[in-house]
């Protein structure tokens, strides 16, 4: 890397700080930026600054937004009485892209992980409880991952909301659409049988 001029070295160093990007990939990206049109490089730089300056958390659901409140919370057609609880913005996008949920969300920004010291105080859990006690909520859908951490987070939320007059549901588990039963693991298969439905 010593053969490169100092500004290029600096760019390589900065890019190699990205997750999953080593020095070789960083060098390739840096050289791409160098050969790209000045306008393209400027747009890239501006978009990085823009996300840092404009993106914040929605005060209601804690999703990422560039406005006072996020698009979903501002949308008058969304069912405000149904809240889908997810661990992070990526999961919110996954549920939203399915197009099958018309309610609102709550992003916890993490999952319980006792062994890593991540407890309820590290999550946006109190904010969810406050929201439920202030607003009229009919159903809470627990859409955390079906991992040990996701399950324990869902169990804790269900326990905290147990005495409230709210329907608490958990997303279903089973065989994926287009999947093949002979390649499905034992645990998923057992859940698929447990949660079978009438036809």
């Amino acid at each position: 890397m010593t053969g490169y001029a100092a500004p290029i070295r600096r760019l390589i160093q900065e890019l190699s700080r990205f997750p999953g990007v080593g020095e070789k990939t960083a060098t390739r990206l840096a050289l791409h930026i160098l050969t790209a049109a000045e306008e393209d490089a400027r747009r890239l730089a501006e978009s990085i600054i823009e996300v840092k300056q404009k993106i914040r958390l929605c005060p209601i659901c804690f999703n990422l937004t560039d406005k006072e409140r996020c698009d979903i919370c501002r949308d008058a057609t969304r069912d405000k009485e149904a809240i889908c609880v997810v661990s992070d913005p990526d999961s919110l996008v996954a549920v939203e892209e399915s197009g099958s949920f018309q309610g609102t969300y709550h992003v916890l920004h993490g999952l319980l992980s006792p062994i890593d010291g991540i407890g309820p105080e590290s999550l946006r859990l109190q904010e969810l409880l406050d929201r439920i006690s202030h607003d009229s909520v009919r159903e809470v859908i627990l859409a955390t991952n079906p991992s040990v951490q996701g399950e324990s987070t869902a169990l804790l939320i269900a326990k905290l909301l147990h005495d409230k007059d709210i329907t608490i549901t958990r997303i279903a588990l089973g065989v994926p659409v287009g999947g093949d039963l002979k390649y499905t693991d034992k645990m998923t298969m057992a859940k698929a049988i447990e949660f079978r439905r009438g036809m």
């Binding site: 319980l112 992980s113 890593d116 010291g117 407890g119 309820p120 326990k159 905290l160 005495d163």
Partner: peptide, 17 residues
């Protein structure tokens, strides 16, 4: 241990609710 600290946090939270 970290898991003990989390256990205590959860106890506090579930007692309050």
């Amino acid at each position: 241990l970290k898991s003990l600290q989390v256990l205590n946090q959860i106890k506090r939270m579930t007692v309050q609710s």
